[in-house]
Amino acid sequence: MSENQPRPHCNPKPRIPIALPAGISDPRMRLIVLLRTKWVNGTVLHYHFLGGPAAQQEAVRSAFVEWKALGIGLDFAEVADPGEAEIRIAFDQGNGSWSYLGKDVLGIGATEPTMNFGWDLTTDYGRTTALHEIGHTLGLPHEHQNPFAGIVWDEQKVYQYFTGAPNGWTRDQTFHNVLRKINTHEVEGSNWDPDSVMEYWFPAGLITEPAEFKDGLTPPGGLSAADQEWVRRTYPGLNGSTPTLKPFESVALSLVAGAQADFVIDPPSSRSYQLGTFGTADTVLVLFEEIDGEPRFLAGDDDSGEDRNALFSAKLIQGRRYVLRVRLYWAGQSGQTAAMYW
C-alpha cells in the first residue's frame, strides 16, 4: 500500500456505559472512568481465533508477543475454547477492523467476537493494525481524539473522506472515531503523541492545525516510545516476592490511584471463605487460582462509585495456591484501605 493510497481505518465499538451515583465528586468520578477499562495487573488474557487464515492468525500472535516483550505484567495465552477466552478474534473482511476497549470485552457474549480484522495483516500497515487493536483491548483509546492534542480539522473534508471509500462510514461513525474529543476524565496526562500506534493515518487537507500536518499525518507504525512507557507504567512487570495473606489478619494498604497490591493465599483448610476490603476506597478485588502455573480467574468484585466495600465468597482448597490482587481507583476520604480474608 503506497503512502498516498487511501487506507481503511479502525472503527472501534462504542463504550459500554456505566451508571454512577448522583452527587459523586469529580475527582472520584475521573479516577473511576479513567481506570475502569484497565485490567488487574498480573491477569492472563486468553484469546481465541474464530476462524481465519493461518497467516493472519500468526500476524496477531506476533503482535501479542510484541506487546508482551516490553516486560509488562499482563500475559497472553491462546485457547481452543472460545468460552475460556476474554478476547475472541474474527477475520470478517466485510466488517472493518475494530476492538472493544479494555475490560468492556467482559460484557460481550461468549460466542461473539471482541476484536475483528478486516484487511491483510501481513503488510507493515497490517502489523500496526494488529498492534493497534490489541492496544484498544489493553485500554488505549485513539490518540488523535486526545482533548489536549490541539488538532483543528477541516470538518467538511473529514466527513467527505471517511464517508467515501475505503471506509464508507456514516457521519455519526466519522464523528465518533475522528472529530469527537475524548472526555478529559478518560485520558492520562496531556501530551499528544502523533507517533503512537493508536494514531490514525490522515491524508493531506484534513488537519488545518498544527500546520506541520496540513500535508497529512503518517505515523511511523509500530509502538512509539510513549506507547511503551504507558503500558509499562499501567502494567508493570511482576518482580519480587509476593507476601502471604493469612486468614483473619487485616493488611493495611497505602496505594496511589491505579496502584495495586498482591497477596498469595495458602488456605489452612478447605472451606468457603469471605474475601474483602475495608475503608472508604474504590477498589477492584480479584482472586486467581494457580492451575499448572497459570493464574486463572476465580472470583472478583468492583465497588467503584458505591458506598460499600468489595466483597465476595469463594471455596478455597487446602494445598492449592491462590493470588489475591487489589487495584485502587480512588483512595477515599481517609486515603487508606485494607484487605482480609476469613
Rank of each mutant, 00 (worst) to 15 (best):
G126C: 08
G150L: 07
W67P: 01
W119K: 02
P6S: 05
D92G: 08
D104Q: 01
D75E: 14
C10V: 15
R15W: 11
A110S: 12
V65P: 03
D104N: 04
W67F: 06
G107M: 11
N146E: 03
M115V: 15
E86R: 13
G107V: 05
F148M: 07
A77V: 15
H136G: 04
E84Y: 13
S62P: 06
V44A: 08
N11A: 11
L138Y: 12
I32Y: 05
E84M: 14
L70G: 10
P113C: 02
E84G: 03
P14D: 09
G23S: 06
R61E: 15
H144C: 04
L101Q: 08
R28D: 05
A90I: 01
Q57G: 04
Y125A: 10
R88A: 01
W98D: 00
L140G: 10
G102C: 06
W39V: 04
M29L: 13
N41V: 05
W98Y: 05
P12C: 04
A22G: 11
I16D: 11
G150I: 00
H144A: 03
A149Q: 03
H132N: 13
V33L: 15
V65G: 07
S25E: 12
P6V: 08
W67C: 02
P113R: 06
D81C: 10
I16P: 03
Q56M: 11
I16T: 12
G23I: 04
P8T: 06
V60P: 00
G139T: 00
D124C: 08
R28K: 08
E133K: 08
H136F: 08
L45D: 10
E78Y: 07
T114S: 04
R30C: 02
L34K: 13
S62I: 05
G109C: 11
F148T: 02
L31H: 10
E66H: 06
N116E: 01
L31S: 09
D75K: 15
W39N: 04
G73W: 12
E84D: 14
L121H: 02
